[in-house]
Every structure is written in structure tokens, then in C-alpha cells.
Design a protein around this nucleic acid. Structure first.
Lengths: 194, 194
DNA sequence: CCCAATCTGGCACTAGCGTACCAAATTAGT
DNA sequence: ACTAATTTGGTACGCTAGTGCCAGATTGGG
């Protein structure tokens, strides 16, 4: 179902944003009709009125969140000054794109990015969306490397992404997970000139 | 709660195995009191009698499954003939250890191994167990490389594992996921002599 | 053999879920 | 302004979940 009126559109959007919020701090399982409605300050039935099913709501939330992240990445690309791309600063830039900007709750913020990769395994309906977003992220990274004067092949981009992703998922089981630090270590080693 | 009688111990074990089965083909969310009891052919209440909580049952199931995988890895190590360790065969061996033996339903079988890494992010109670199993797996791989006449540093083992893991999670979003193939590609490239 | 400990298993409670329903309110097109 | 379409929101249904309860069966130690 899609809204036909401006106010309806606003309400629908409020639901999507509420769902995205829940997604970020509780994962996919946190997106429930009642929780979304409550967070958006709307009645329960509005969630079924604007979305035919939970899957649709989950998809919309994921898309919203993913687009926000991609927009952030594009902004970073646009403001990129090729002269200020020293090794360490560049590594941090790549980490910002792949894991989100560094914050005080890294582990939590990063978790969702990997939950959704794995969750896609059991939720085939997310695959088209995930593929699109993943493709855009890869392209973005490719551009970043090029713009920064460190051109790489697309294959190399995939390698570096895999390295970061693998480092992250393995870091999640630590007592005090610090996935960003683990990824940083791997990335620095892989990118240092040989 | 722990069993005190032989029969009780057998029942408890049956529940653990039933839970592990469910874990493998439905993920963590598939471990429910009723589902476990039904699969084990036991009454619902037996699940709460032998396990104080679902968390305990989940933990036991994961440990059982993980130990089975580690045992498989150790068996492969023991039967390893250093002379038959050509490049490709060796890559397959490493993949067997990290992803499980190759089968016709790779994607499904592999999924659980990554679900549990990520799930640990939101289930801190699994961390000690995951750390132990992860540590043993790393050690096992280290031994395998050594025994195969390709000694590596522990750091290098971590790198290769990260590479494989990253390749896998990124492969899960494909229309027809083939995580093993993706991991194989990355691993071959990383291991080819330079 | 007996009795205390252990185990059994049917049942019911509460909570939360997705979803359906529908009268009332609001909005949009003419 | 009028009417048809859309939106609203309170409510209820059916289901499954985790868990508590407890009379009875089974078992093991002395």
C-alpha cells in the first residue's frame, strides 16, 4: 500500500523512520508493528494500512537506512581533498564508509551493517535491495580510491572490503568488541606499500 | 539444571541434539521450547526441567554443534598427508575447515557459521563459548598450515580467515549465493606465491 | 524392600505477535 | 459544497511463545 495524500505520505515516512530507528538499535527483530507505531506516535493500525506486510516495512526501513549511509558516503567523496589523503587519514576515511563514522558506540553501530548481510541469507526478499546498496558502496569506494590518487582495480576493492568485513565479524565475539580497531589493523597492513 | 540419572542424561542429550539440528537448519530463532521437545520426541516440560532457560539450551546446542565441527577439523588434520597437499587441494581443505565440508547445500550450511558470529553481537552470553571455539579453530588452522609444509604466522592465519569470512558474508546477498566459490577465489589469490 | 530424590508430562497462564475489522473522521475532486 | 475516496484509530481474534504448576510415575541408595 502507498499513500495518496500529503499527510498520508508524511505519516508513512514517519513510520519508515521509526522502523529504521528500531532497526539500528535493536536489529531486524525489533521491527514489530506495535513498536513502530508507538515510536512514531501513531496508532497500531497505521502500520498495516500503509504497509501490506511486515516484510514491506522492514524493506522500507532498510532502504531508508542504507540510503542515508550512502548519502553520507557521497558527501565524504565530494568534500575529499586529494592533498589531505595521508595514509592514516585515508584508512579512517575508508573505515567511515564501510563501518559508519567513528562514534563512542562503534560496536553497536557496526553490528547492524553485518546483521543485515547475514540476515539476507534467511530473508531472500531483501536480496535485490542489498545487492543494489552493496553495488553502490563498492562503486563509491572505487571512486574514493581513484580520487585519492590511489587507483585500484574493482577486484582489489572487493578484496579490501572482504578483509574489513571478515575482521569485523571476528571481532564481534570479543568480550569488549572493537570491530573498528580490528578492521583498521587489517586494512593498514593490506594497504601499506610493499 | 543438570541431569542426575543415566536416563535423565540421555534425555538431556537428546534435547541438545534436537536443538542443534534446529539450529543448523533454522538458525537461532528456530530453537523454541516446543520445537525442541517435539523434535526430540519429548514433552514440552522436559525442556524447562533440564534447562533453566532458553539461553542455556541455545548455548548447549551451539557448543554441541561447534564441538562436532572442531572434531571434524581435528580428524582432517590427523589424516593429513603432507605429500598430497597441492595448491588446490590445500585450499579446499582450508575451506572445509572454515565452512564445513562441501555439500550440495553450501549456502545453507555456511550460513549458520556466520549467523552465530553476528548473533553474538546481540547475545553477550554466547561470547565466552564463541571465543573458545574460535580460538580452537585458529589453532587448528595454524597446525594445518604447519603440517602441510606452508608455515605461517598467527597473524597471517587471522588475515586469511578474515578474507574468507568477508568473502562469505558478501556472497550471501547474491541471488544464488555461492559463498564457498567466493571464498575460494579470494583464498587462492591470497595464497598464490608472489 | 522402601522411601526420598528424581523425573515425567499434561495443562494453563500471561504476554506479545500479525492481522482483520469497521464505524467515524478527514480529505480531495468536481 | 457535496460526495466519493481515503485515512484514522480503537478493538478483537487467533496463534505461538516462555514459563509455572503439580499430581503421579520412576528410579536409586541403604
Amino acid at each position: 500500500m502507498t499513500a495518496a495524500t500529503p499527510k498520508g505520505e508524511r505519516r508513512r515516512q514517519a513510520l519508515v523512520e521509526a522502523a529504521a530507528d528500531l532497526l539500528v538499535d535493536g536489529g531486524f527483530d525489533a521491527i514489530r508493528h506495535r513498536a513502530v507505531a508507538e515510536r512514531a506516535g501513531l496508532p497500531l493500525a497505521s502500520t498495516t494500512y500503509y504497509f501490506d506486510s511486515l516484510e514491506e516495512l522492514v524493506t522500507a526501513a532498510l532502504e531508508f537506512q542504507g540510503n542515508a549511509e550512502l548519502a553520507y558516503g557521497k558527501a565524504r567523496l565530494d568534500e575529499l581533498d586529494p592533498r589531505e589523503c595521508g595514509g592514516d587519514a585515508f584508512v579512517e576515511l575508508v573505515l567511515d564508509l564501510l563501518l559508519g563514522p567513528s562514534g563512542d558506540r562503534d560496536a553497536e553501530a557496526v553490528l547492524l551493517r553485518y546483521e543485515r548481510l547475514v540476515a539476507t541469507g534467511r530473508r531472500p526478499y531483501l536480496r535485490p535491495l542489498m545487492r543494489r546498496m552493496s553495488g553502490e558502496l563498492h562503486a563509491l569506494l572505487f571512486d574514493i580510491f581513484t580520487r585519492a590518487g590511489q587507483p585500484v582495480s574493482r577486484e582489489r576493492v572487493e578484496e579490501l572490503i572482504a578483509l574489513v568485513d571478515g575482521a569485523v565479524v571476528n571481532a564481534l565475539i570479543e568480550i569488549s568488541p572493537d570491530p573498528r580497531a580490528a578492521a583498521r589493523r587489517m586494512l593498514r597492513k593490506a594497504m601499506q606499500p610493499r
